[in-house]
């Protein structure tokens, strides 16, 4: 299996560089921190951060039976969470374009499901992280289930793909780099993948979370 080691000033940067080189998102990778950075004394004995990154079993390789089990775990967990939060909602499992979604739908049309999405999808990202942790605690495999709240994730992804293509065309035309707005790691991955498909362009992530942004450049 392909694995690489990267060193950089911070663990965060080393991971991001390694992921970019392998073309993986954090969720698709197994990351080991080999060495934490040290600043040293007056610049002497300083140590860089070193990480080792290799691909985890990709989503397509998470076998049907395991994925179904993950789907059930995710749906049960989310249903229990909704009732603990006092939100009248149902959870449906749906396969859309090869991805298994656990979708939370409000039972009453007036219900504010925006609360579960949050600003820029922040709360939805948090739900995704809790589901990932719950699922991976019960199965050894990478979590292949995507959480959605009333199709927000799917709509946002489609929007993001269109926006990335538009910016990509702009860079190709002008020959000048463009910096996109801050995005979550999932959203940056969507942009990296979309631009990679266009050819003739490259992407990199810059800045610190939560202000991390994708930059598109001509090759």
């Amino acid at each position: 299996m392909e694995e690489i080691e990267k060193s950089a000033a911070s663990v965060e940067e080393a991971i991001e560089e390694a992921l970019a080189e392998l073309g993986l998102s954090e969720q698709e990778a197994r990351i080991e921190i080999l060495q934490e950075p040290k600043s040293g004394f007056l610049g002497r004995n300083a140590q860089a951060a070193v990480v080792r990154v290799r691909p985890a079993a990709p989503a397509a390789q998470v076998e049907g039976e395991i994925r179904d089990k993950q789907g059930d775990l995710a749906a049960d967990f989310l249903e229990g969470l909704m009732s603990a939060m006092g939100i009248p909602a149902e959870v449906e499992l749906n396969e859309v374009q090869g991805t298994l979604y656990a979708e939370v739908w409000g039972k009453e049309s007036g219900d504010d499901m925006g609360l579960l999405i949050g600003k820029h999808g922040h709360t939805l990202d948090a739900l995704q992280e809790l589901v990932r942790s719950h699922v991976q605690g019960h199965t050894a495999d990478r979590c292949a289930v995507q959480v959605d709240v009333e199709d927000y994730r799917k709509r946002r992804t489609a929007q993001l793909v269109r926006h990335a293509r538009e910016m990509g065309r702009k860079v190709a035309k002008s020959g000048r780099p463009e910096t996109l707005e801050p995005m979550s790691s999932y959203e940056r991955k969507v942009v990296h993948d979309t631009i990679a498909e266009m050819g003739g362009l490259e992407t990199a992530s810059e800045g610190e979370e939560p202000q991390r942004r994708v930059v598109i450049r001509p090759v």
């Binding site: 663990v11 939060m85 006092g86 609360l115 579960l116 922040h122 709360t123 948090a126 992280e129 942790s133």
Partner: peptide
Amino acid sequence: GKIIGRRGRTARAIRDVVRAASTRS
């Protein structure tokens, strides 16, 4: 370690979801 997660990611998610539930109440 499971509650905190790598670089505090899980702890952050727990806080975000509890905050959302609190806002509702």
